[in-house]
Amino acid sequence: MSTGLEGRKLSTTYSCSKGFYGQNCNLTCNYKCDGCNNMSGSCDSGCKPGWKGDNCQQPCSYGFYGLNCTQTCNDKCDGCHNVNGYCDREPCPPGWEGSSCQQQCQENKYGLNCSKMCGNCRDLSQCHYINGSCLNGCDPGFQGEKCNMECDFGFYGNGCLQECGSFCKRSRDCHHVTGFCKNGCKHGWQGNDCFEVSKLEDSNTDWKSRFYGMLGAFCVSLILNGLLIAFFIMYIRFKQNQHSERAKKAQSQYCETKPSETAEGGYQELGDFNAIPTTYQNLEIQ
């Protein structure tokens, strides 16, 4: 007697949880599969991102990643992770950072891994993200392509074009940014840049000026007084000489006049003398 089961194929239909397969669903699917066949375990539902092949055993080719290996790695990467596209094989090239090397260096940094600091770029602007050059020039007091060198000795300020003062204690030795003399000023000068005449020196100069002025006035006074005295002496001598000349002249005139008077008087006396005998003769006649 036939039971009706003969010749019939026994079919058993079952479904394992995702990630498992086999008769008792106790076998684990390949982790690279996006699920697998319940019976054979083949990756008939496709591969997880980053993998390819029949059994999802092959990673994405160089330069590709993601689901079905269709996404392209960032061109800044030297290849990338086959699953997430991160640049994990080599560091990002100089000037780039981020998991996929998608971001330029920032915050005044540049170079490999953005590990170098920019120089003293003008107004703290960002330097070139790869080589660190300052694109807009340097802050006052600095020079060079990267603005990381101070001004040469004796210069300061914008473009290092201003000269330090020559009255610094050490001539032209000033701060490269401000121009202030580092060790003070030479004698007689003051101020941050030693361009002001010292007040003490001014007072000393004033005192010396007054002293020399008074000394000069005194000397001039002595000279004038000496000239006045000399003039007075010469005037007195002139008067004395003039008086002496007059006296001599008067005496000379006197001497010329006196002899004639004597001769004339002597004549008269002689005449009187001659008159005596006449009187005497007259007396005899009487």
Rank of each mutant, 00 (worst) to 15 (best):
Y65W: 12
C168W: 03
V177R: 11
S115P: 00
L124A: 12
Y65V: 01
Q106E: 11
L224T: 15
W207C: 05
N74W: 04
E284R: 13
L161H: 07
F218K: 05
S17M: 07
C80K: 03
H128F: 07
Q58L: 06
Y14D: 06
N136R: 08
H128V: 05
C56F: 13
G132P: 08
F231Y: 14
T70S: 15
E261D: 04
N84I: 01
N74D: 11
Q71I: 01
K116V: 01
E269M: 13
G22A: 07
F20G: 01
K146Y: 05
K48H: 14
N204I: 11
E97A: 04
S61D: 11
G271P: 00
M1V: 09
Q57P: 00
E107M: 02
S17P: 08
M39W: 03
G50S: 13
S260V: 08
C80G: 07
P140F: 07
L124I: 05
C56Q: 12
C80E: 08
K116W: 02
S115Q: 06
G144I: 03
L10F: 13
P91G: 01
G159L: 05
K258Q: 13
F64S: 10
Q281K: 15
G191P: 12
G63S: 04
Q240I: 10
R170H: 13
L224S: 15
H81K: 01
E145G: 08
N120F: 07
P93D: 09
S11H: 13
T70N: 15
M149W: 05
S221V: 13
G98S: 07
K109T: 12
K18A: 13
Q102I: 02
C181W: 12
S221Y: 14
L135P: 10
C101T: 13
Y31N: 05
M234T: 08
C77N: 04
F232A: 11
N204D: 03
G35S: 14
Y156C: 06
G66Y: 02
T3V: 12
G35M: 01
D193L: 03
G46A: 02
T279M: 12
S252F: 00
T178V: 03
C69T: 05
N74L: 01
C36H: 15
K18M: 10
D54R: 00
M214N: 14
S11A: 11
N26W: 04
D34G: 07
C147E: 09
C87T: 11
Q253A: 01
S171C: 05
E6F: 04
D75C: 00
T12P: 00
S203E: 15
K18T: 13
L161C: 01
E90I: 00
C87N: 10
C43P: 04
N108K: 12
G179R: 12
N148E: 11
G95K: 05
G154S: 10
S252R: 01
A230D: 01
M234H: 11
S125W: 04
C43L: 06
K48C: 09
M39F: 05
T13M: 04
P277W: 14
C160L: 06
V197C: 02
A217D: 07
Q251M: 09
